[in-house]
Simulated scan of single mutants.
Amino acid sequence: MRHSRSSAIAAGILVGFALFGTTAPARAADPDTERARALFDEAGELERHGRWGAAQERLRAALGLRETPHLYYALGWALENDDKLLEAKVAYETAARLGRERPGGEEAARLAAGRLTDLEKKTPSLKVHVTGAASSKARVMVDGSEVKCEDDVAKTLVNPGSHVVRVERESKPTFEQVVYVGRGSVRTLEIEGDGVATRNGTRERHGPSPARSRASSAPPQTGEHGDSVLPWLLLSGGLAFIAGGAALLVSADADTNTREKMQARWCNVTACTGTGTGTTATRAETAEAAEYRRAATDALDTASTKQAFGLGLGGAGLVAGTVGAILLLRGEKTVEKDHQRPHPRARAGAAPLPGGGMATATFSF
Rank of each mutant, 00 (worst) to 15 (best):
A88E: 10
R100F: 02
A113R: 12
V153K: 02
F20S: 10
C272H: 05
P31N: 06
V319S: 01
A271N: 13
G44S: 14
V196P: 01
A133W: 13
R51V: 04
P210E: 12
L189I: 12
A290Q: 15
A109R: 05
R183L: 05
E288F: 06
M1W: 10
E291V: 05
E107K: 06
G317M: 02
A108T: 04
A271W: 01
R139G: 15
L318I: 03
T117Y: 01
A348E: 07
S304A: 15
A96I: 03
E332D: 15
L59D: 07
L126V: 06
D30L: 02
V179R: 02
L59E: 06
S145L: 12
G12H: 05
D32N: 15
A95L: 14
T156V: 10
G314Q: 06
K148Q: 12
K306Y: 00
A320M: 11
Q56H: 09
D152V: 03
N257A: 13
A316T: 12
L313Q: 14
V140L: 04
A218S: 07
A296S: 15
L71E: 02
T280A: 13
A252G: 15
A74D: 06
T270Y: 14
L234I: 01
K84G: 04
F17L: 12
M358Y: 09
P69E: 14
K121C: 06
E260A: 11
G274K: 04
A316R: 00
T33L: 08
A243N: 09
A252L: 07
G105F: 06
G245Y: 00
A299Y: 05
V165T: 04
K306F: 01
H3G: 05
S185Q: 10
S304Q: 08
R166A: 03
T280M: 10
E190Q: 14
R214C: 08
L126R: 01
A316L: 05
S7M: 02
S171H: 11
L65T: 15
L116Q: 04
L75T: 07
P25G: 12
R212N: 03
E192F: 00
N159G: 03
T198R: 13
W77G: 08
T270Q: 07
T23N: 06
V140F: 12
E288A: 12
K127N: 09
R97C: 02
G223N: 11
A325I: 01
R187G: 14
V142A: 09
I326G: 09
V130E: 14
A252C: 14
R183I: 03
G99Q: 09
S209P: 05
R51A: 10
